[in-house]
């Protein structure tokens, strides 16, 4: 127990030290790599169904304003009864345009990708459903706050538009929310 306390104290010290250091260093610059993973709830636009996902992201800043990003959503389950989808995983790729001031980073993103989805078998007449691949498009508004050279807090909302057309037609457009702590590292030294 004592060792665990020491470990957390050491982590806290590291966190504070890196935060102090970040005030003298520019974090948001070309070469910044950002990764995060979190639990993301969603709400379907065409029905009352709500699901939740494991959301992972990798983003590379090509300049202070532009970054390329990829996101993955792994379906974890439904928050409502009688869900219309058995599962829906997503892969997205796209870009973000950043409005930065200090370590504050507000951004807008446009991403395209695919949904790998399957409807619930009780929706089909023969109680068999198949996995389908559907194109989707997504817009994102988000905010990152870089508290150190290694950590940042993030929050983002995402609107996804798409249709599942396998076995039964389903509108799979939804809105998702993600927030949490992310990790970042600068791959290039500042000039």
């Amino acid at each position: 127990m004592e060792k665990i306390k020491q470990y957390y104290f050491l982590l806290l010290l590291l966190f504070i030290a890196s935060s102090i250091n970040s005030q003298s260093t520019e974090v948001i610059r070309p070469g910044l790599i950002r990764v995060m993973s979190t639990i993301s709830p969603s709400k379907m636009l065409s029905s009352n169904n709500a699901y939740f996902y494991l959301h992972g992201n990798l983003e590379v800043y090509l300049s202070k304003k532009i970054s390329v990003c990829g996101d993955g959503f792994y379906f974890l389950g439904s928050q409502t009864q009688n869900p219309s989808l058995a599962f829906m995983h997503n892969l997205f790729y796209g870009f973000s345009y950043h409005f930065t001031k200090g370590n504050n980073d507000f951004y807008l993103s446009l991403q395209q990708g695919v949904a790998i989805s399957k409807v619930s078998e009780n929706l089909t007449s023969n109680h068999i459903s198949s996995v389908g691949l559907s194109p989707v498009i997504s817009t994102i508004a988000g905010y990152n706050f870089y508290v150190s050279r290694f950590f940042h807090f993030f929050v983002q909302s995402r609107l996804t538009l798409g249709e599942h057309n396998y076995d039964v037609h389903q509108n799979i457009s939804d809105i998702r929310l993600s927030a949490g702590l992310g990790f970042n590292i600068n791959a290039l030294k500042s000039k």
Binding site: L110, Q112, G113, V114, P135, V136, I137, G162, E163
Partner: peptide
């Protein structure tokens, strides 16, 4: 680059694509 396409005014209706 990457693209999203909206297909419309065809005999079949409209749809979206990715590429």
């Amino acid at each position: 680059g990457a693209r999203s396409t909206f297909s419309s005014f065809g005999d079949e209706g409209s749809g979206i694509g990715t590429g």
